[in-house]
Amino acid sequence: MRIDLTDTTASKINKALVQGRRAIGTPAVGMVLTLVIVTDEENAYDSIKAAEEASHEHPSRTLVVIKRHPRNLRDRTRSHLDAEVRVGSEAGTGETVVLRMYGEVSEHADSVVLPLLLPDAPVVVWWPVDAPDDPAGDPLGALAQRRITDLYAVERPMETLERRVRTYAPGDTDLAWTRLTLWRSMLAAALDQARVPVTSATVEAEADNPAAELLARWLEARLHVTVDRVITDGPVVTAVRLGTANGEIVIDRPEGPIATMTLPDQPPRSLALKVRSTSELIAEELRRLDADEMYAIALRGEAGKETPVHV
């Protein structure tokens, strides 16, 4: 069911949530986390949909913070908060509150969000677009254990990437990194089989792809080799080549979801290596709620010289 509240406050929203749950007959549900989505009106629909799909795996309270910029001056100065409370079938397996903030209140979104967080449960903030320069320093980001940004949704990904390196705080993560998990696990599996030291590496990808850059940095940090970046037509990452004394290990995905893996002295094999949907990426992100240390290492690359102590 859906309850609309205009010109409201957090305590009225809390009341509406209890009322909504009572009405559908589930006074308490086992929600495991609060997901705060900070977005604009344009991206709200897709983000909510992805979060709802992900909520099948992680029942959560989703708070969607939309900052509105009214056209006329009078509305712009009048500060108010509208809310839409969705429970039951309208909100996946959890509950969703869409918060639309006008005027000054949008500068104080954290004051609205804080009373609506689930007791005890972890908080995740996700900026599908327009992530702040310093996610951990952001008032909303500061409430969260985990802060999800997306380098694919920025205009100059490489510049933003450098900024992320500087502002990294434990708990930060990026969907560009999440997109690499399949690649990384296949590369690790390839090396499991080859069992030889890697002497050189190449990442082939479309130009200015932040995921490719993260992949290259990860390989540099882990393999202690210089990784060549080769620009191709894409889509996204098209191949990774690891040079070894016995020959080359190649995972090649020229197009489509099927990749080919070639190991020295072994027949080539095909692998399913598809590009995953946002909801799958978010579901993966929500599985871990502690800091992703490997992301930090990949982000800093070899420059950070941050080799984990226990290998």
Partner: peptide, 22 residues
């Protein structure tokens, strides 16, 4: 399979818990 005993896969790390047990 046979491999140097001290070989450990540099791409795997206990910290890296996204990589599944394959």
């Amino acid at each position: 399979p046979v491999a140097p005993l001290d070989w450990s896969n540099p791409l795997r790390d206990p910290q890296d818990r996204r990589l599944p047990r394959i």
